[in-house]
Structures are given as structure tokens and as C-alpha cells.
């Protein structure tokens, strides 16, 4: 696989949201607006890239039977680092995303990539894989966020183009499921062609 396709595969062929269907909780919970989706995607990407790099480095010396606990410790460490950095430098974002920052630990995308890719590939490839999948995740979250923000509050990235309210249900829980469902239909339809 060429280096370039390592990065682009996450956008379409192995898109973590629409194809692999991983990491659903933050996908649904944090996409109330385009900006929130983008920020959550970037936060996840940060942890994904670093944990991919470290796990690809230590994989050869980690005994098979304890590899899951070791990976979880590594991932949890980076999540805590991210928490501390966000509290220090972007406290507002940290407040908005709330619980879903610590929950990156149990985002199946990250442990999934560690198991499926990072532990049998080199450092560079693993880093690129992290960037690719991370970008795919960020892109999906942003798209869902844009759709929900347009329908729910009549705005894009906070820029309002209608006065008054949108269809509130799309900002609330049901809208998350509906938008993701219909976007998946669209994705399936386009991917078939």
C-alpha cells in the first residue's frame, strides 16, 4: 500500500463512521454543531496518532497475554495528557465536549487500530494510518455536525442564515440518530456507484 493511500483510505474506503461503524457514542453525542464535531474529531485524532506511534514501537516486546492491558494504559495516558492540555489551553472546548473527552479511552476506533494495524506495522505507517483514520473520523463528525446545525439551528459553523429557530429535534438526541442513519444511506448509495 502506498503512503498516500494510507492517508486517503480513512476518508472513504475505510471511513471509521460510515463503513467501519466504530466510535458511535461521540459521533452521535458531540455533533450538535459543526464546530463541536470538528473539535471532537481533532481530539480523537490526537490520541489516535500518538497511541498508534507508541504501540507500533512497543508491540514487538509486549507479551501476547498482556497486550490489551498495556495498550489500554498507553491510550489512557494519552487521553489524560489531552485532558490536562485542554483544561489548560482550551477550557471552553473542554467544557463543551465534557464527558466525551475521557471516553476517548473506550472509543473502539483507537483500540481497533492498535489491534488491526499498529501492532504489526512500522512507526511511519502507523502514524500515517492514525492520520488517515483520524481525518476520516474528523470529516464524518464535521459533516454530521454541519447537517444537524443547518437543520437544527439554521446556521453553519455558528454563522446564522435564518432568523429564529431551526427544527429543534435535530439538535437533540433523536436528530443525531436520524441524521447519521440518512447520511449512511447516502454514503451507501454513492459508494455503490
Amino acid at each position: 500500500m502506498s503512503k498516500f493511500s494510507l492517508i486517503t483510505k480513512g476518508l472513504l474506503k475505510e471511513n471509521p463512521t460510515f463503513v467501519l461503524v466504530l466510535g458511535m457514542c461521540p459521533t452521535l453525542a458531540t455533533t450538535t454543531s459543526a464546530m463541536n464535531g470538528l473539535e471532537m474529531g481533532l481530539a480523537t485524532m490526537f490520541v489516535l496518532i500518538l497511541s498508534n506511534i507508541v504501540i507500533s514501537l512497543i508491540a514487538p516486546i509486549v507479551p501476547d497475554k498482556v497486550h490489551i492491558p498495556v495498550y489500554i494504559v498507553v491510550i489512557a495516558t494519552f487521553v489524560t495528557v489531552l485532558q490536562l492540555l485542554m483544561q489548560a489551553f482550551t477550557p471552553d472546548v473542554y467544557k463543551t465536549l465534557g464527558l466525551f473527552i475521557p471516553l476517548i479511552v473506550v472509543n473502539c476506533i483507537i483500540l481497533g487500530r492498535a489491534e488491526a494495524f499498529a501492532n504489526k506495522n512500522g512507526v511511519w505507517d502507523s502514524a500515517l494510518d492514525g492520520i488517515g483514520i483520524g481525518l476520516g473520523f474528523t470529516l464524518s463528525l464535521t459533516v454530521i455536525g454541519i447537517v444537524r446545525e443547518i437543520l437544527g439551528s439554521g446556521a453553519v459553523f455558528g454563522w446564522k442564515f435564518i432568523s429564529g429557530d431551526g427544527i429543534l429535534a435535530f439538535v437533540m438526541a433523536p436528530g443525531a440518530f436520524l441524521v447519521l442513519g440518512y447520511l449512511m444511506v447516502l454514503f451507501n448509495k454513492l459508494a455503490k456507484k
Binding site: I58, A59, P60, I61, V62, P63, D64, K65, V66, H67, P69, V70, V73, V74, N119, K120
Partner: peptide, 17 residues
């Protein structure tokens, strides 16, 4: 690929990590 597991290397790696 992952190393073979025995008690010493498991304990060592976990502690080190």
C-alpha cells in the same frame, strides 16, 4: 509480532509501561 508470554516478561513489561 508480539513476544511469547512468560511470567517474567509479562510482569516486567507491565511494570515498565
Amino acid at each position: 509480532m508480539a513476544a511469547k508470554s512468560n511470567l517474567t516478561n509479562m510482569a516486567l513489561v507491565l511494570t515498565a509501561v
